[in-house]
Design a protein around this nucleic acid. Structure first.
Length: 161
DNA sequence: GCCAACGTTGGC
DNA sequence: GCCAACGTTGGC
């Protein structure tokens, strides 16, 4: 199966690139997602080896800061069963988990962060989910979009147009 | 900090 | 099943 690509958002006040870099094996559990559409992607679509654009929301401007890779596919998000977690969900049963997580590993920090206003201007990204349905915290990225954005992140001229 | 977009809840 | 009220996300 062809490698697929995703954009995953993180609030850097909670967990950002510095924390990812410091994590063991530069790997983290990407958890806490409490939206059903995003859950379905985590549970059913995202596979080991898929590429991830690591995105910082809540910044001015919000920006893509790194690439990562899925190293563990969807599994029940442990935080939903943890009463001390802000993501605890009393209605979820362990035999029928409601929420899923994946593990991602940092691959490459961008040489140049790519901000949202720039993404809006680049030819070839007009249909990005990020630019049209902004609130989804994990969303599909096409291979063409992936190539354009990772080129921008390398600081090279964008050849995608 | 504000507020628009939009997802979820719950009364009917 | 509809939809108003409410809560959250996230850009600005």
């Amino acid at each position: 199966m062809a490698r697929r690509y995703w954009l995953m958002k993180s609030d850097p006040d909670t967990f950002g690139l510095p924390e990812l870099k410091k994590s063991p094996k530069k790997t983290t559990e990407w958890d806490g997602v409490r939206n059903y559409q995003a859950r379905n992607l985590l549970r059913d679509e995202i596979r080991v080896g898929d590429g991830v654009l690591f995105y910082h929301s809540q910044l001015s401007p919000p920006r893509v800061v790194a690439t990562a890779e899925v190293v563990r596919a969807g599994y029940p998000d442990p935080t939903q069963f943890d009463r001390r977690s802000p993501y605890f969900d009393a209605r979820s049963r362990s035999e029928d988990p409601r929420w899923y997580a994946v593990d991602i590993r940092l691959v490459k920090e961008f040489a140049r962060e790519v901000g949202l206003p720039e993404l809006r201007e680049v030819a070839g990204l007009e249909d990005m989910v990020l630019l049209n349905r902004s609130r989804l915290s994990v969303q599909p990225v096409t291979s063409a979009e992936w190539n354009i954005i990772t080129n921008l992140g390398r600081g090279e001229i964008n050849l995608g147009r």
